[in-house]
Simulated scan of single mutants.
Amino acid sequence: MKISIELWRDVAGWRWDVPDDEVCGICRVPFDGCCPSCKMPGDDCPLIWGECSHAFHMHCLIKWLETDSSQQQCPMDRRPWVTAK
């Protein structure tokens, strides 16, 4: 049996409050998508901002900071990473 959809109406939607062309500086995936570790965007794949004003997928940043080469610095400007409040 085939079903055809004649009308579609969204009842809700979400977007991160970042410019449309912004991508994660680590994985290069747009913020309205999800990081390579996740299957679904949204609350399970949140963004995290630093005091330097750069934003990343939380999972990407955690993996980055766990590497020895990160030296606990922002991957974009190499300042010491401090999470914005």
Rank of each mutant, 00 (worst) to 15 (best):
K2Q: 09
K2E: 14
S4A: 13
L7G: 04
L7Q: 12
R9W: 03
D10Q: 11
D10C: 06
D10Y: 11
D10P: 11
D10V: 11
V11R: 14
V11W: 07
G13R: 14
G13Q: 14
D17F: 11
P19F: 06
P19T: 14
P19G: 10
D20V: 03
D20T: 04
C24Y: 03
G25I: 03
C27G: 05
C27F: 05
C27H: 04
R28F: 07
P30C: 03
P30I: 01
F31Y: 13
F31H: 05
C34M: 01
P36Y: 01
S37C: 08
S37Q: 13
K39Q: 11
K39N: 06
D43T: 13
D44Y: 03
D44P: 06
C45M: 09
C45A: 15
P46V: 09
P46F: 10
L47Q: 07
L47T: 02
I48S: 15
W49I: 00
G50F: 09
G50T: 11
C52Y: 09
S53V: 12
H54T: 05
A55D: 10
A55F: 05
M58D: 08
C60W: 01
C60G: 02
L61N: 10
I62T: 07
T67D: 07
S70R: 02
Q71A: 10
Q73Y: 00
Q73L: 07
C74I: 01
P75A: 08
P75G: 12
M76P: 00
R79C: 02
P80M: 14
W81H: 12
T83R: 15
A84N: 15
K85G: 11
K85Q: 15
K85V: 09
